[in-house]
Design a protein around this nucleic acid. Structure first.
Length: 525
RNA sequence: GCCCCGGUGGUGUAGCCCGGUCAAACAUGCGGGCCUUUCGAGCCCGCGCCCCGGGUUCAAAUCCCGGCCGGGGCACCA
């Protein structure tokens, strides 16, 4: 068995394939078929082509991150899969505790577009207050909702005991009167709340007569200012909106599972059909902070540079790190609809991203922590021509010129390798014999020019640069940010936003070019 | 404490609904090799998983019960 494996390994790939086609032709057909069938999302229950409406409903109180992206991408993906409609709805109904900020409305739209979304409709819950009022009033008239003026603690006590509060069963006229007082400002913040009637013996006390609308005295809402004082709570706004906007399928985190039981009461009272819901688990990347409050805190304390700090898991941060939107999409689709939480490793994301980036990223030499290498015995100028991409020579070449008497620079990262080697090949240049190796300088002697010799002798190969421009690579590692300073080949044609590979170093995205200094952010190996 | 929901290699997912074809698949990771002027890509080989205990059954990753572990919810937040 081992012998056969050895033999096969000795053949070239073409030989292997030809042989295989000879003895086992079906293999090739089958392989292709199998590749097709996998991947992609499972079919959606009760989904009809052209009739699926999904929505993503973020609160614009922070930047969009990978965790939110799961619900967003699934929603969008299914909308497209069934030729349906995807709605973006800003759930900006809390001007107090989770205050929306104007910038995040813009960023969320921007990030969604960057991810390749086609947004069919955009709605703002804060524009829809009158709609909520209308339905609230209807529910009150139907006797399915009431205005409660209990102190929160008192209500909680009754609720936990499964008992009705004194306002619950008062006649509709009185409820409507109080509702009016909520709207006209007679009641102040904290004095009254509209509650939806539920089963008072519901096993989960938190579901019993849950609050639907509350008063906020000086909302100073970023979009509506102080125009409205009565604001719906999440469950009410969401339930009404999903119905009113015709949403058929909802994707949200499992932390919302309990909310569904609350919202269903409204649907039942009105006789509406509840959308199909998919509750997925939480998605995170190992070691990356997604929490909005932690991020905000870190920014305030100066720990993070901003919402796009490369250590963070916001979509903007991922973008800055050179992660492609398509990679994020693929990742989320591959994780799928599972209900359990998922913590993916960077390797998983990096592997997807690398497949996308590798064919397009141009190659350059970047020498981190340069050490000069003086080379004796080669007295002419010599220009190394290196392809911008090894698999695509048609894209052109870069030229690195060796000049006698002038050192070339190699990276301190290769110091150990140099110390234990007698000979080394400078990639695309020539082979040298190492005479002296230290952290401060390296002295070498020209040996030969042929690549073949280095290969036969199994000499190691390192990258180098004759002269270069200053370059800094920011490397996010967990919660740390380290900077590698070095030299990038002088004529490297890089622009901000380019994703390139620094050979033997890794893929980076060019983040800025300031005063001739190239600043890059490390993506992955 | 109460109420939900989960648990398949190091990581992520498929299989579970409808028990056998699953001594378990795919990707990533790791080890080895081939190829290659990158420690990149590609190719080949290998490593490694059904949380535990009972039960039902001719047969259980799949069904049932119990346990353990993990996550979430229990706001006049979303």
């Amino acid at each position: 068995m081992n012998k056969i494996v050895e033999e096969v390994n000795k053949m070239s790939i073409e030989e292997q394939e030809t042989k295989l086609r000879e003895i086992y032709p079906e293999f090739f057909e089958k392989k292709e078929e199998k590749h097709e069938e996998k991947k992609g999302l499972p079919p959606l229950p009760k989904a009809e082509k052209g009739k699926v409406v999904t929505r993503f409903a973020p609160n614009p109180d922070g930047a969009f991150h990978l965790g939110n992206a799961r619900a967003a991408i699934l929603s969008h993906e299914y909308a497209r899969m069934y030729d349906g409609k995807f709605i973006l709805r800003f759930d900006d109904t809390d001007p107090k505790v989770k205050r929306p900020e104007p910038i995040f409305y813009e960023w969320i739209i921007e990030d969604l577009k960057w991810l390749g979304f086609k947004i069919d409709e955009i709605h703002y819950a804060s524009d829809r207050l009158e709609i909520y009022y209308k339905y609230a009033e209807e529910l009150i008239k139907m006797g399915k909702a009431y205005v409660c003026t209990c102190k929160p603690e008192e209500f909680r006590k009754l609720r936990d005991a499964g008992k009705p509060c004194p306002h619950r069963d008062e006649p509709v006229e009185i409820q409507l009167e109080r509702w009016e007082k909520m709207l006209d400002g007679t009641y102040k913040e904290g004095e009254a709340v509209v509650r939806i009637k539920t089963d008072l013996n519901h096993p989960n006390p938190a579901v019993r007569d849950w609050p639907a609308l509350r008063i906020i005295d000086n909302p100073d809402h970023p979009r509506t200012g102080d125009k409205y004082r009565v604001w719906p709570l999440y469950n009410f706004a969401s339930a009404i909106d999903d119905y009113d906007l015709g949403v058929t399928h909802i994707f949200r985190g499992q932390e919302h599972a309990e909310n569904e039981t609350r919202q269903r009461y409204i649907y039942n009272y009105f006789g509406w059909e509840y959308p199909v819901t998919v509750h997925h688990g939480r998605l995170s990347i190992e070691g990356v902070i997604l929490s909005k409050s932690k991020t905000r805190k870190g920014i305030r304390e100066g720990k993070y540079l901003g919402w796009d700090d490369p250590r963070l898991g916001t979509i903007r941060a991922l973008k800055r790190r050179g992660i492609l939107p398509e990679a994020i999409r693929e990742l989320i689709i591959s994780v799928g609809l599972k209900r359990s939480d998922t913590t993916i490793s960077w390797d998983n994301l990096a592997a997807i991203n690398r497949k996308l980036i590798d064919p397009v990223a141009n190659r350059y030499f970047f020498v981190a922590d340069p050490i000069p290498m003086y080379i004796k015995g080669f007295e002419e100028e010599f220009t190394a021509k290196v392809p911008l991409h090894p698999d695509h020579p048609e894209r052109g070449y870069r030229e690195l010129k060796f000049t006698p008497e002038k050192p070339v620079y190699v990276s301190k990262d290769d110091l150990e390798l140099l110390k234990k080697s007698e000979y080394i090949r400078l990639k695309d240049l020539f082979n040298v014999k190492l005479l002296e190796v230290s952290e401060g300088k390296i002295v070498a002697e020209f040996d030969s020019i042929e690549y073949e010799k280095a290969r036969e002798q199994r000499w190691h190969m390192i990258h180098w640069v004759p002269e270069g421009k200053e370059c800094e690579v920011i490397i996010p590692e967990g919660d740390e940010l380290t900077v590698k300073k070095g030299l990038l080949e002088k004529d490297a044609d890089v622009k901000v936003d380019d994703i390139v590979q620094f050979e033997r170093f890794g893929f980076v995205r060019i983040d800025a070019i300031e005063n001739g200094v190239v600043k890059a952010i490390f993506a992955h190996k």
